[in-house]
């Protein structure tokens, strides 16, 4: 099975509004939107399946390493910066809240659990979406409108294998690694604000982390990171790959709109899936 540039959708999904009676038109519009949405969901699922199935192959290792560098290594600085200040703010807020109840000793566990279970995976995913996800959509979108993807097809090179699979694999590798960096630097940020600036005992801060953080908290955080990686990679690649199917615009404008849609959709899906995964894991 191959997703081609000429997939059904654009033509078939066009329903002539004018044929429906006036009173039914809102329902027709809603129905059409739902059908289009379900169709996109199905297409994205097939897209992801094909991308995963085509990860093994000729020259794929070097492409995955290249993409891991691009998505992962190049994002480390921004991830560290964001996580440092997130941890510092958490340390600051939780210290002032807990000290009123004489529970300042729990600052370490509160900061670390918040980061490991929630903020680490979510903020990492959102930051990578903003930095690398948007670039992925724009890059693939431009390759689509300049017929580079069609050129691959004519050269018997699977565009999914060549362009999409390495990005999905690289995202699955990078997200948990960057999440762990976020967690560690965030805990360090909490230490700086709570211990070094507010005078909490350092031993108490670290002991609290050691006592309350268990391995399942960390693995749950990584599970979320992997789920977010799959969502972000799929959404961003999908929007770029099907830029030419947009009915609202063409060319460079379509690439811009696809990029915006990819970032917004990714962020919303990260938060929605965060709730779903959390409710399944707790």
């Amino acid at each position: 099975m191959e997703i081609t540039a000429d997939m059904p959708g654009e033509n078939e999904n066009k329903v002539n509004d004018e044929r429906a009676p006036l009173a039914l038109r809102p329902f027709a519009a809603t129905g059409r939107t739902v059908i289009a949405w379900v169709g996109s969901l199905g297409a994205a699922a097939i897209f992801l399946f094909l991308a995963v199935a085509r990860i093994p192959g000729r020259n794929q290792f070097s492409r995955i390493v290249q993409q891991t560098y691009y998505i992962g290594a190049s994002s480390i600085t921004i991830i560290m910066l964001v996580s440092l200040f997130t941890g510092m703010v958490l340390g600051l807020q939780s210290y002032h809240a807990l000290v009123q109840f004489g529970a300042a000793g729990a600052v370490g566990s509160l900061v670390s659990l918040s980061l490991i279970m929630e903020l680490g995976p979510v903020l990492t995913a959102i930051m990578i979406t903003a930095r690398a996800g948007s670039a992925i959509t724009a890059e693939i979108g431009i390759q689509r409108i300049s017929e580079q993807i069609d050129a691959l097809t004519t050269m018997r090179i699977s565009p999914i294998r060549y362009l999409i699979s390495p990005k999905v694999a690289a995202a699955v590798i990078s997200f948990p690694l960057l999440t762990s960096v976020f967690d560690l630097v965030g805990i360090l940020g909490g230490y700086i604000s709570a211990v070094m600036l507010l005078g909490l005992n350092g031993g108490i801060y670290l002991h609290s982390i050691q006592t309350y953080v268990v391995l399942s908290d960390i693995t749950n955080g990584f599970v979320k990171a992997i789920v977010f990686a799959v969502i972000v990679a799929t959404v961003c690649c999908y929007h770029g790959y099907f830029t030419h199917m947009r009915t609202d615009s063409h060319g460079a404008r379509a690439v811009g709109l696809s990029t915006t849609a990819a970032v917004v959709t990714s962020c919303v899906l990260i938060l929605v899936s965060d709730y779903v995964v959390t409710s399944l894991l707790v």
Binding site: S146, Q148, A151, M155, I157, Y162
Partner: peptide
């Protein structure tokens, strides 16, 4: 292709060699 469809992030050499490599 009419618009050439060359890969703009690759050199001319890499563009020409791509089908053989892959």
């Amino acid at each position: 292709f009419q618009g050439n469809a060359l890969f703009d992030s690759m050199t001319v050499y890499d563009n020409i060699a791509l089908p053989l490599r892959e």
